[in-house]
Amino acid sequence: MHYYQTLQPQRLVITGAPGAGKTVLALELLLGLLETRGPEHPVPVRIPATLWDSSHPLREWLVQHLVTTYRQAPRTAQALVNAGLILPVIDGLDEETPRTPPTTPPAPQA
């Protein structure tokens, strides 16, 4: 956690082989940030990468995630994201399947 706090900007990607402990390390970082969090610091929120619809901008999707997962009012969620009070901890990027557009249009339905 100390290493993360010294980064400017505070961004971190955890890489490693399957089973190397990337999720455990991300959760330890998240818990450590929560333990030392002051009122001016963002709240770290774990988000499985498989839930992220990358066709939408991350900030827009983050607002929707707060609304659906944590039952925040849309206005409140938007205000929290706009104020930089949410720190997304995206986990499982290596589990994400690539999304490619179809090469042929779907067949007409009869």
Rank of each mutant, 00 (worst) to 15 (best):
P39L: 06
Q5F: 03
H56L: 08
T104G: 07
L87W: 01
P57V: 03
L80V: 09
L51E: 10
L30Q: 11
G32E: 01
D91S: 04
L7I: 12
I47T: 03
A110P: 13
P102W: 03
L58G: 08
P39A: 10
L33N: 14
P105C: 02
A49P: 07
V45E: 04
T76H: 13
T50M: 14
L12A: 08
D53S: 05
S55F: 02
T15G: 01
A79L: 11
R99I: 07
P9A: 07
V81T: 14
L58Q: 05
V43H: 11
A83F: 03
R71Q: 15
T6R: 14
L58Y: 07
T23D: 06
G32W: 01
L85Y: 11
P9K: 11
V63C: 10
Y70Q: 14
P57G: 09
P74C: 10
A20W: 04
E96I: 03
Q109D: 01
G16F: 00
R59V: 09
H56T: 08
E35H: 14
Q109M: 02
L7W: 08
H65P: 01
G84S: 13
H2K: 14
T69E: 11
P42Y: 04
R37L: 15
V24A: 09
T36P: 05
W52D: 05
T50L: 15
G21H: 05
A79G: 10
L62R: 00
I90Y: 02
A79P: 04
T36C: 10
L31C: 06
R37V: 13
Y70K: 09
N82A: 14
A110Q: 06
P88N: 03
E35M: 13
P39I: 06
Q64Y: 00
Y3I: 08
P102L: 05
A83H: 12
T50I: 15
P108Y: 02
T68R: 15
P44R: 07
P106Q: 07
A49K: 11
T68V: 12
L12M: 14
P98F: 06
L25T: 02
V24Q: 08
P9R: 12
P57A: 10
A17Q: 12
Q5L: 12
Q8S: 13
Y3L: 12
G21I: 08
D53L: 06
S54I: 03
V81L: 11
T103Q: 06
S54F: 03
E95F: 04
I14S: 05
T104V: 08
T15I: 11
R59M: 06
L12T: 09
G32A: 10
Q64A: 07
T100K: 02
Y70D: 11
V43W: 09
G16P: 02
R37C: 10
V89R: 01
E60I: 05
P44C: 05
Y3H: 12
P106M: 04
A107Q: 14
P98G: 02
L66Q: 00
R59G: 08
Q10E: 13
L85N: 12
L31R: 12
V24H: 09
A26T: 01
P102C: 04
T103C: 03
G16Y: 01
P39K: 07
W52A: 09
A20I: 11
A73R: 14
E95V: 04
V13N: 02
V45L: 15
G92W: 00
A73K: 13
P105R: 05
P9L: 10
R11E: 09
Q5N: 14
L30K: 10
G92A: 05
P98H: 03
